[in-house]
Amino acid sequence: MPYFATYKNVLLAALLLCLSLPLLAKHTPEVRCGVATGFPPYQFSIDGETTGFDADVARLIFQRLGKAFQFRQESWDLVFNELRFGDIEVIAGMEVNDLRTKFFDFTRPYYYRYDVIFILEDNQQIAKLEDLHNKFVSGDRHSYIETHWKELGTLYNFRIIATPSKEKSMALLKAGKIQAAIMPKAVGLYLARQMGIGVTILDNPDPGSPVAFAVKKGNSELLSQIESTLHALIEEGEVERLYQKWFPHSSTKGKPDSR
């Protein structure tokens, strides 16, 4: 009789555990990871699926952590503000600068981006930076180039306009509605190939901006988890392997956009 009672108790405990597991899973919060739209080959979508180098690294990190997660993919300004005001927990692939460190904590960098100024290849009227004075240029807010121009006091020599995406900037350049576009080198080259247009780089002053994962300031637990996992993936060569997938013949250890 005691054996039978014990057996019943074991069965009852097992049954209760099976019933509770779906409820636990249901109430386990997913990590919401922000990524931008229209930022290929780093962050973009194909047929509605989030893809790109930063997205691949994020997937690998959360798989290694065993954490449920979902991508929140929107325009960069929306993603930025959702992290700042608490609607998401982390952003993949954010460039680190002094302004952003006031609001966010960052992991170690896992690669660098380089902002450049693109013009159309057949534009005979623009040969040097001064030729863009009083011309329309699509901007890239918080980029090294615009920050550098502010420091030099030359920013207002250019007619900077904002666009909702890098694709829009490249489309405007193709249509001749702007004379230059500021964006990361790899992004511009990728979009130019996709749109079938010839571009050239007018100026490339950027020494490189470190790129990392960002969490809201003070979220030390999540930051520590992502940081330790990212460190392991870098040491194992997994981040470099993913980089080679998107940027053949380049390396995270050199100038990533130097192709």
Results as ranks from 00 to 15, higher is better:
188 G>W: 00
202 L>M: 00
112 Y>W: 13
75 S>T: 12
58 A>T: 11
128 K>F: 05
36 A>C: 08
171 A>S: 12
228 S>M: 10
140 D>L: 07
108 R>V: 03
211 V>N: 01
235 E>P: 03
235 E>G: 00
213 F>S: 04
95 E>W: 09
232 A>R: 12
53 F>R: 02
9 N>Q: 15
99 L>C: 07
218 G>C: 04
10 V>W: 15
106 F>M: 07
128 K>T: 05
2 P>Y: 15
123 N>S: 14
92 A>R: 02
137 V>N: 02
237 G>C: 08
86 G>H: 12
172 L>E: 06
90 V>R: 05
255 K>S: 02
168 K>V: 10
13 A>C: 10
226 I>F: 07
109 P>H: 08
87 D>G: 13
90 V>E: 03
3 Y>F: 14
195 M>S: 11
120 L>I: 01
55 A>M: 02
47 D>E: 13
127 A>E: 12
6 T>H: 14
11 L>M: 11
213 F>Q: 05
147 T>N: 13
228 S>D: 09
119 I>K: 00
23 L>T: 15
90 V>L: 14
1 M>Y: 14
124 Q>H: 08
245 K>A: 00
25 A>E: 10
133 H>D: 11
248 P>N: 02
258 S>V: 02
97 N>R: 09
101 T>Q: 14
55 A>T: 03
21 L>R: 15
239 V>A: 12
221 E>C: 03
24 L>P: 05
179 Q>V: 05
112 Y>L: 07
194 Q>H: 10
92 A>N: 06
247 F>N: 07
25 A>Q: 11
91 I>R: 01
31 V>Q: 03
63 Q>F: 05
45 S>H: 09
161 I>H: 08
51 T>R: 11
8 K>G: 03
99 L>T: 06
153 G>M: 09
44 F>C: 06
13 A>E: 08
150 K>T: 01
64 R>G: 04
38 G>L: 04
166 K>H: 14
18 C>D: 06
98 D>Q: 11
211 V>T: 11
55 A>I: 01
37 T>I: 11
180 A>P: 00
53 F>I: 04
249 H>Q: 15
125 Q>S: 14
157 N>W: 13
119 I>V: 15
140 D>S: 13
153 G>L: 07
192 A>L: 03
100 R>V: 07
25 A>L: 15
221 E>D: 12
125 Q>K: 13
152 L>Y: 03
75 S>L: 15
232 A>T: 10
100 R>Q: 07
10 V>D: 12
226 I>E: 07
149 W>K: 00
44 F>R: 02
259 R>T: 12
255 K>E: 04
72 R>H: 14
33 C>Q: 00
62 F>A: 05
218 G>A: 09
51 T>K: 10
12 L>E: 15
142 H>S: 12
103 F>T: 06
31 V>P: 02
162 A>Y: 14
72 R>W: 14
135 K>N: 07
113 R>K: 15
81 N>M: 10
87 D>H: 10
38 G>D: 00
